[in-house]
Write a protein that binds this DNA or RNA. Structure first.
Lengths: 170, 170
DNA sequence: TCTGAACTTGTCATGTTATTACATATCGCC
DNA sequence: GGCGATATGTAATAACATGACAAGTTCAGA
């Protein structure tokens, strides 16, 4: 773990705040590199570049948006190129799919096992990641009561982010 | 276990339990009819039939699966027919969309304002609906901390339903 | 260093899910 | 009947995703 997470982010990756974006990208790429090296999995140029694209945009991107960028750079032009890289990133915990948007976003907590939850702003499309505890709450209760064994959860809240609430154009 | 199930009725899902399916359909259709009458909105033949289809199957159906049935019955053959009816049902609380599956399911609590949550069995595709309380739990905390205003939540758990856990064919 | 197995990428084709646009029909009301 | 609002019919296309197979790359072990 790096000694200091970017200063403004002290509140635990709330995600709607400004932050040191350059170092956030560098950190995440470095982390991914180290994790892949440690696990003996290949962090190829396309995979790396796709993660970098997601980190740069810092919002949810559709597979075809990613593909457009790859194509511009000569890194591939057919859908499977993008989907395969995205699948790799998702499977290894470097990115998540936002089901509601059919789109992908870089993970805010790479290398940590976690059940992600998202807040999606319907005005500006910003997406913030946080954590959830699926076993808790009503769903956990219902699952226990029904004898349902939870393996994975999708938790996505749509609403209005603080910046858009403040802006005049509500 | 008697394996003399009559086609649609084997694994059904308010919980994941068997129930009186015929009356469940009748009840839900009647309820929808009454609500529409009370609200002055039109419960047209296509809309009624689509809800009936969802209730009969009692699982999540893709829009094109619904459309296939409509086509067989001469109720329409182009995608917008199905999508419009489904949109109507979702907007009026008679059905929900399961984002994870890109599919639709009849609502288990029509006429009540509620934030639905779903348990999706990855073995048999059964889907059970329960309620969630978005404002509670980690996500609620994060939203309050971030100043994010939740308008709607998607909460879908994938896992194994009790019937599939018991079955030898794991 | 060669070689073969495992993995990754390139490419074409296709499948699946969803919407836009506009014409026509129906409903409720005056 | 005539009008506005709502709903349906239809064609076309957009957006999202996968299957199949060939070719290239990596890397451990002979």
């Amino acid at each position: 773990m790096t000694s200091s997470d970017h200063g403004t982010d002290a509140k635990n990756a709330l995600g709607f705040e400004r932050h040191d974006h350059a170092s956030c990208i560098t950190d995440a790429l470095g982390k991914a590199e180290r994790i892949c090296a440690a696990e003996g999995i290949r962090f190829t140029p396309v995979r790396r570049r796709v993660l970098e694209i997601l980190l740069q945009e810092h919002k949810a991107l559709g597979a075809y948006e990613v593909l457009d960028r790859l194509r511009d750079e000569g890194l591939g032009s057919q859908p499977p190129i993008a989907y395969r890289a995205l699948e790799f990133l998702v499977q290894n915990g470097f990115a998540h799919k936002i089901e509601r948007l059919n789109a992908f976003i870089a993970c805010a907590h790479p290398g940590q096992i976690h059940a992600p939850a998202f807040m999606i702003c319907t005005k500006c499309d910003a997406v913030a990641e946080t954590r959830s505890e699926p076993a808790q709450g009503d769903l956990g209760d219902a699952a226990r009561a029904a004898g349902f064994q939870i393996e994975r959860t999708v938790l996505e809240a749509e609403g209005v982010c603080p910046l858009c609430q403040d802006s005049p154009q509500s």
